[in-house]
Design a binder for these strands. Sequence first.
RNA 1: GGGCCGUUAGCUCAAUUGGCAGAGCAGGGGACUCUUAAUCCCAAGGUUGAAGGUUCGAUUCCUUCACGGCCCA
Length: 494
Amino acid sequence: MADDDRGSAASAGEETTALLAARRQKLERLRSEGIDPFPHDFDGVTPIADVKAGYDELEDGGETEDRFRVAGRLAARRGQGKAAFLDLVDRSGRIQLHARVDVLGQESLDRLVSLDLGDLLGVDGTVFRSRRGELSLRIDGWTLLAKSLRPPPEKHHGVQDVETRYRHREVDLLSSEETRNLFIARARIVSAVRAFLDGNGYVEVETPVLQPLYGGAAARPFTTHHNALGRDLYLRIATELYLKRLIVGGLERVYEIGKDFRNEGISHKHNPEFTMVEFYEAYADYQDMAQRTERLVAAAAAAAGYDGAVDLSPPWRRETLQGAILDRSGIDILAHPTRDELAAAMAAKGMRVPPDDTWAQLVDELVTKHVEPTLIEPTFLFDYPVELSPFAKRHREDDRLVERFEAYVNGMEIANAFTELNDPDDQRRRFEQQRADAEAGDEEAQPYDEAYLQALEQGMPPTGGVGLGIDRLVMLLTGRRSIREIVLFPAMRD
RNA sequence: GGGCCGUUAGCUCAAUUGGCAGAGCAGGGGACUCUUAAUCCCAAGGUUGAAGGUUCGAUUCCUUCACGGCCCA
């Protein structure tokens, strides 16, 4: 918190509207009357939902002597002269307050009614049900807990401006129960993922975000600088290589939930920082991990109260990548194993062929354009070309392929998994190929990671691993079409 | 990167063919002891995203820019 813009006026450069000035005036009036507009605490608060839970039997107009203390934000006010109704909102719900002059006295009622919408308020009172049937609190005491110096959004419509909702998420949250519930659902999904993995004997770990070498995904990194070490470091693009070093170390089942950072475009499904869970399991292969994945997603769906149109319950559909492309586009990628052959096959089908794309990029283009949009029901695509997958183990039956799957739902990739490559010599050859790709101009090629190779030389058991995008999972389970809706503070331009 | 759309009072939205920029909510003053999108009366609130241009006159038409949304690459 900056110390230098304190004071009674709005910060320098800020427009001063009559609305802001009126709130500041009230603040000063409270202070001059000896009332602390920002007290330190308010003990003994009951969540509003808990207060309301116990009174289903209370008849309309019924009174009780049950006292509660609640606290929250003043959301609405309906004055009546010698009485007033106010609505108070906390994280659990909303409750109506009834303030009467014969209970509070004139001065206390006047002060209460002159509070601003958005002020934070603590009250004590007794439960009753209004004649119209709303469970309410008749208040006999109240305390201002924090003065709000900015007006809240329109009380019926909330914040509609998308940009404001993203840039000032706190305003979105305080005015929208739907937004609050959305991010609570997100938290429950993350908890469910964690509980699922913990329940299957996994150990949660934390590996470096700042890495001397990045790896584990085809992406460009953010670069930063460590002053004391005098060297550049990268923000991780994946947790993969460190997690597999922990498998070498004998932890056998590990996972990490955390942010990855990829220095690429922003879209409705890409934020430059995003949350990923990666989990690795010794003595498992990619088929085992496919089962883990579909069960994990089903557990998360249950935790989020998912009720979308797409059925997520296991088992999911299973196809091969080659078959899926052949089926949708009529092109057999394995029958056209060079760049020029595949480009010719695509051109023969009337497809536009980007002239600089490699064979692997053309395959990716076929998947993205022709296959991905058709994968609405949850589907695993198995068995990828080795060129696309530098960390996946070669297929046990076809050495042009690796044992890899990607999981798709709603036309969107949500997970990527391998039987992990644990042959250090094969891994070294893959790094050499990546180095050649980088020299040929591939900006997403993997840097040569000698420390990782040494770990593999130590001996890594057969292992299956999965990376699953938490943001995309949340989008799926909450029915949102944009990652910006389900990230609290999405990346925005200045 | 390209196309389309949007940006008006604190918030949610109007504004006819280019002709005085209006409502609701919130805020201010007043009335009201069961209201709940409370109601009623009064007054106030604007550099129409920014900069240029056309015009007697621009929220409106044109150009550029900024930010956002949707679609495409």
